[in-house]
Amino acid sequence: MSHANAALTPRHRLRLARLIVDDGWPVAHAATHFNVSWPTARRWADRYAALGRDGMQDRSSRPHRSPTKTPPDVVRKIVHLRWKQRLGPIAIAAKLGLPASTVHAVLVRCRLNRLHHVDKRTGEVVRRYEHDKPGAMIHVDVTKFGNIPDGGGHRFVGRQQGNRNRAATIGAPRSKNREPIIGRAFVHTVIDDHSRVAYAEIHDDETAATAVGVLHRAVSWFSARGVSVERVLSDNGSAYKSHLWRDACQALGIKAKKTRPYRPQTNGKIERFHRTLGEGWAFKRFYASESARRNALPAWLHEYNHHRPHTAIGGRPPISRLTNLPGQYS
């Protein structure tokens, strides 16, 4: 491959070859003129005579035959042990009587040298998908966070003070043992498959009626940004299996899709968003009350959609993948 200080770049190879083939220069004379060896000048002249201008480009130096290459049946055994038993190169080499370096080379060639390339549940190679336009598919799901008692939760103030704050929280209902019931915040989230733009609402339940209301408002929110929703993908939660959800999707002209049971990988974009949501908003900093945390969600969503670079879309913010954006959004 040519480099910055190469004597012969593809353009100069062509000039050299034309002098010899087309203009009849002696090979030794042309080699001296371009400050290269006689065999080098002869090689490029022969290649030009056989292939023309296209023959001046770099070609792969990979040999035509590799007699010592690992046999295909051994490669299959290595891949099988990696997929099904999650063994490393040393363990696989011990089982098969091979050098660990050979096993590692095979795993690199098969893109199995790192286990994050492999689905943890099935052992199969991870298959990623992305719809080709915004709105072609949206993902919906619900994640839960324990409410924060007045004064702060145990994550920041410690278990002992956290229990005191729970007991002192005003308006918290009590169990039959007079223990305070702080409850949970149910965050209903919607992610566009193509752009990763996120929409979220916090509610006190995850019933079908609440999920349908979130869907209607999310579709309107995307519509205001020039995105028409065609499909919605959910898990098999009771809200998404209800007749109310089915009827709402039909009324909106959206095709309802569901993941296979116990296969959260299919809905992986929104599962990964929930992790980001927890790290970046729910548990990022100290909140003195649940209302303070809930009030902070819109600003965090704006940061996520408009400013936070997303690695899956080339380091750009999700909103950059939406077209015809009418103004600024929150």
Score class of each variant (00 low, 15 high):
His302Asp: 15
Arg42Thr: 04
Gly24Phe: 00
Asp46Asn: 12
Ala299Arg: 10
Val142Gly: 03
Ala224Cys: 08
Thr266Pro: 03
Leu98Arg: 07
Trp221Pro: 11
Val219Glu: 06
Gly123Gln: 09
Ala41Pro: 04
Gly52Lys: 05
Glu124Asp: 13
Glu201Gln: 12
Ala7Tyr: 02
Phe34Asn: 00
Ala93Met: 04
Thr143Lys: 14
Asn236Leu: 03
Ser330Leu: 10
His243Ile: 08
Ile90Leu: 15
His307Asn: 10
Ile182Ser: 03
Cys110Gln: 14
Val126Ile: 14
Val108Met: 08
Thr68Val: 13
Pro134Asp: 06
Arg321Asn: 04
Arg184Pro: 00
Lys144Ala: 11
Gly315Asn: 05
Asp23Val: 06
Asp73Trp: 13
Gly162Cys: 11
Leu107Phe: 02
Arg109Lys: 09
Leu16Cys: 07
Glu290Ser: 10
Gly55Cys: 02
Pro63His: 09
Ser61His: 10
Asp54Cys: 13
Val219His: 06
Leu14Asp: 06
Pro309Asp: 04
Ile170His: 13
Ala31Cys: 05
Asn305Arg: 03
Val187Ser: 04
Gly268Thr: 04
Arg121Pro: 00
Val36Gly: 04
Glu303Met: 12
Glu206Cys: 13
Lys257His: 09
His139Lys: 05
Arg13Phe: 06
Val232Lys: 04
Gly327Asn: 00
Ala93Lys: 02
Ala185His: 15
Gln161Pro: 11
Gly280Phe: 00
Ala45Ser: 10
Leu233Thr: 03
Ala211Tyr: 03
Pro149Gln: 01
Ala185Tyr: 08
Ala167Trp: 07
Arg62Lys: 15
Asp192Lys: 04
Lys84Gln: 14
Glu130His: 10
Pro180His: 07
Ala248Asp: 03
Arg166Asn: 08
Gly146Asn: 10
Cys249Lys: 06
Ser175Thr: 15
Arg285Ser: 02
Glu279Met: 04
Arg225Thr: 08
Ala211His: 09
Thr9Gly: 10
Phe186Tyr: 15
Gly151Ile: 07
Gln57Ala: 15
Asn324Arg: 14
Leu98Trp: 00
Ser60Glu: 10
Ala136Pro: 00
Gly171Gln: 00
Ala256Glu: 07
Arg155Gln: 13
Arg18Leu: 06
Asp192Phe: 05
Arg18Ile: 01
Val187Leu: 12
Phe186Ser: 05
Asp73Tyr: 13
Thr189Gly: 12
Tyr262His: 12
Arg86Tyr: 02
Glu230Ala: 14
Gly151His: 08
Val126Pro: 02
Pro149Trp: 03
Leu14Trp: 07
Asp150Gln: 15
Lys284Pro: 02
Ala185Gln: 15
Ala30Pro: 02
His104Ser: 08
Gln328Tyr: 13
Arg260Asn: 12
Phe186Trp: 13
Asp119Met: 03
Arg62Val: 14
Val103Leu: 02
Val157Ala: 05
Lys241Cys: 11
Pro26Ile: 01
Ala31Asp: 01
Ala218Ser: 15
Tyr287Asn: 09
Ala185Ser: 15
Pro39Leu: 01
Arg18Ala: 06
Val126Met: 11
Ala185Met: 14
Pro89Ala: 10
Ala198His: 02
Thr68Ile: 08
Ala172Cys: 11
Tyr287Gly: 09
His64Ile: 14
His104Val: 00
Ala105Gln: 14
Trp300Ala: 07
Glu271Asp: 04
His154Ile: 05
Leu325Trp: 07
Ser223Gln: 14
Ala312Trp: 04
His306Ile: 02
Val125Cys: 05
Val229His: 09
Asn324Val: 09
